[in-house]
Amino acid sequence: MVMKLRSGVHIIKQGFVSIWKNRMMSFASVSSVTAALMILGIVLILILNINNIASITKSQFGEVIVYLENDLEKEEINAIGQTINQTDGVLSSIFQSKEQALVLMEEYLGNETHLLADIEENPFPNSYIIQLKDIKYADDVVNKVTGLIGIDEVRYLKDVLDQLMIITHFVRLGGLIVIGVLIIIAVFIISNTIKITVAARKREINIMKYVGATDGFIRGSFVIEGMLLGLIGAVLSIAAVYYGYKYLFNIIKEELYVLFTIYLIPYSQILNDVVIMFIAIGVGIGVIGSVLSIRKFLRV
């Protein structure tokens, strides 16, 4: 066990030595991993943020407001409430009375309450605010509720939401395609770079085979090298993406509009999302690249 451990340490040390000795090639490999992951990071941050904006706006617009006619009895109002709650797609509904609506308006106006001073009668209707289980139920719910007796008006920002849904759909799809293509390109670049590295070290492999190294040993040392290269690339790109995003985030916060940042994903959370994913992808690319490129050189 101790011996295994020690030879493991030795193999990793050799990996670093070999990366350093072949530093031109190593630099090329690391740069391509870093570049691919950085682009991936940018796309990812875009997608995450658009998702975030979509879900925030969705919850803001995803309400159906049902204004009731003015002269309903209490029982009628309750009955409407029950019918609404039993409708498919309704998550919950809140009754907002005329009085509550007025109070809310007063709170909203704050110092400007005098604007309401001239009004004798409370102009606000009673209303139900419906939370939908999902946006897709919106049309059904709106249709059903509109047909009920005692309803004055049903308000729902359908057009805005539809647009938003379409946009987020395409951004997500586009993002996934870009990410997929990027990963394939990265594997291709890495395996080519490693192939050149391996070709340059054909002699070394040849000598290893004459001395009696097993294919597993040879492959192992190259795979470890590929893993280390991928890891270095991942760490560099994580740092670049994190600090780059943090920088932008702060610019937006300070220079533009503080409130806008509530729509943005905080940079600390980006770090969480990205670290494991990038390390996994970086190491994966390194391993796949080295396995692919070493195969044909093992036949001596």
């Binding site: 070999s18 000795k21 072949n22 002699r203 070394e204 040849n206 000598i207 085979k209 004459y210 001395v211 009696g212 190294a213 097993t214 294919d215």
Partner: peptide, 23 residues
Amino acid sequence: NRKVPYLRRNIGIVFQDFRLLPQ
């Protein structure tokens, strides 16, 4: 083929062009 490395471990080989690892 898989056992070839173990065969070669019993044989030391010396070539005209030395075949040392330069690094």
